[in-house]
Design a protein around this nucleic acid. Structure first.
Lengths: 345, 345
DNA sequence: GCAGACGGTGAGAGCGCTCTCGCGCCCACG
DNA sequence: CGTGGGCGCGAGAGCGCTCTCACCGTCTGC
């Protein structure tokens, strides 16, 4: 309504409770070493006045902010088009909330923004950062590393620089891919194709590697490059069909790509899974469940990834040795993936 | 690497530039009333030392934070499952960034969280809030309103309380629905059904109202209630088909619902759009473009909605009269929707 | 019965910044 | 040459909090 009723200060609470500022402060921050009688009086005063600590004043002296930044690079791309991001955020948010930390969201748009983000992080406004950067050539990770902010990366950073002390959380893309391809092989398929994701992203590279792990001596023409989009999937599928009409299975780098491939297969009159078995990746529900037939795919626990990232960061912050993968703290944590069987394979 | 190199303070910059703290402060904050010679010297010192103002110290005295909260209620629901949210955020982020504001993201999980959010907002940690709350009975809006934080709502808040001074941005759900139904009518369809969204959300209610605007005296059996999900769409479609086998068009409350309906229609052997024309709502790309046939739908400019919300809030903040729809500031801004014609109608 | 220890409390400094105030300088004007 | 008015700048207070330190009272041990 009107402008900001003057918020009560520590001083006010102290006066009301008949104690000193210091004592109120102690109570507010856990209350060790204060007699119950006093503590109770203070709590009552806090309650009555509706006292809320001024975070700015607190940060000024503690140099802690109880806030961490979540940096999402280039929302142009698919990150933003699928629920991935939202789920990840949700996991992060839950974990941060549980530890009374705030989430400051930084979305970057193009290169210029990198310096902005870098400055912000270097500015010490937050205690740490969670960074999502998908592209191999992204300067952001290095920039952030240099800013000296404790950081945990989402997804293995494809980053040519010094890797020491880089902490990241990733899905087991390679293992998941292996499981998918093995499943196809187990179905008796022998001409198993792969449609890759955008190969400037580590997840795509890892999935391709997983495919190769199993199909070591496969016909290289069974691999077609795409970009994680349905349109890319269509294109690649057409290519594959032209090149290897005898293929009997496709492992697509993600569900979107798979949905494109599915469409092309249907057009071409190939029955799924009878003629061609198809597996995707991500278990992106609105897609995987809506395809025809419903998609067999590799699920990753996105939300858990987010939680874990936050947990790792906060734990590091506590220890005072944030990002260094010293001793027992692993530098990279890889979450398992599971195959979800639906109808397409 | 090591812990936090001690960041330079105003004092340090002042010393280096041979001026007083006050002068440095002036230069850093716009630099009026400082001779160019001095200003230049200060800027040089800032540069050399890599000075970044301590936001906490600044906020402590200015009582501004240059940060606004984005509150998203109940990420359980569909909000989180579609790209809506991400796009909205992106719009908000762009606008905030342009005005050097930070985005603090607050996701709520269930009721208990409401008090947490309320306390946070009341705590004066942010200058304002953008709130997304979909449900009619959500206590959050009222809570926030009481907290006295300048707020702009995303979507018309379905809120029984005092409406004075509530600022919101919404899509023209009703108008969009009307356009969709009129389009169907224009196609010569006469038995036009409607599958509603979750009717505890204003957007669903408004879309239903839009349908009714055009189909004032339609058979009430042509309306089936669903919940914005594909499964709900399937269920409702089956219902409708049973109840009114002669229907020749369906306007679904959103694309997800439409995709479910489409599937049931196909199963039932109805050709789309020949036998039954279908229109969705949202223009949610991964869905609308992937359906078979591609979905005709009503597009809303989600990102612009976000931008607009942020712009409205910041403008209000500037004026010092944030939420009151005083005089020229409208209380609700409704963004136009447009019909996107694809193959389904 | 007294020294020492110890837990609880208050006084006060200081975090880094902004902003008001007043001083000094220069210019214009009388 | 004297005076008034700006303008540019510095001094200093103070934002609300934490944290160290010294103090006080009580309790223990000899």
């Amino acid at each position: 309504m009107t402008d900001t009723a003057p918020r009560p200060t520590l001083e006010a609470v102290a006066a009301r409770a008949g104690v000193s500022r210091a004592t109120v402060s102690r109570v507010v921050n856990g209350g060790d070493g204060v007699r119950d009688i006093l503590a109770e009086r203070v709590r009552k005063a806090v309650e009555e006045l509706g006292y809320v600590p001024n975070q700015a004043a607190r940060s000024l002296v503690t140099r802690r902010h109880d806030a961490i930044a979540v940096v999402v690079a280039e929302p142009e791309t698919r990150v933003f088009a699928d629920p991935f991001f939202a789920l990840q955020l949700r996991g992060i948010s839950k974990e941060l909330t549980a530890h009374d930390n705030q989430l400051v969201l930084l979305l970057t748009e193009g290169r210029d923004d990198h310096t902005r983000v870098g400055r912000y992080l270097a500015g010490g406004h937050v205690d740490g950062a969670l960074v999502f950067s998908l592209h191999l050539d992204d300067p952001l990770p290095e920039l952030i590393q240099r800013a000296g902010v404790p950081t945990v990366f989402g997804g293995r950073p494809g980053w040519s620089g010094d890797r020491r002390g880089v902490v990241y959380v990733d899905s087991d893309n390679r293992g998941g891919a292996r499981a998918a391809v093995r499943h196809l092989a187990g179905l008796g398929r022998t001409r198993i194709a792969h449609i890759t994701g955008a190969l400037d992203q580590t997840s795509a590279v890892d999935r391709l590697d997983g495919y190769r792990d199993v199909m070591a001596d496969a016909d290289p023409r069974l691999i077609a490059e795409a970009d994680f989009t349905p349109a890319g999937g269509e294109r690649a599928m057409r290519e594959l069909l032209g090149r290897c009409p005898d293929l009997d299975a496709v492992f697509a780098a993600n569900d979107l790509t798979a949905s494109g491939a599915l469409r092309v297969l249907r057009e071409a009159g190939r029955r799924v899974p009878d003629d061609v078995a198809v597996i995707g990746f991500d278990d992106m529900l609105p897609v995987a469940e809506q395809t025809d037939p419903p998609l067999t795919t590799v699920r990753q626990d996105i939300e858990e990834m987010g939680r874990l990232m936050a947990r790792l960061l906060l734990r590091g912050l506590d220890r005072g040795t944030p990002q260094e993968g010293v001793g027992d703290t692993p530098a990279g944590v890889v979450l398992p993936t599971t195959l979800v069987r639906r109808a397409s394979a």
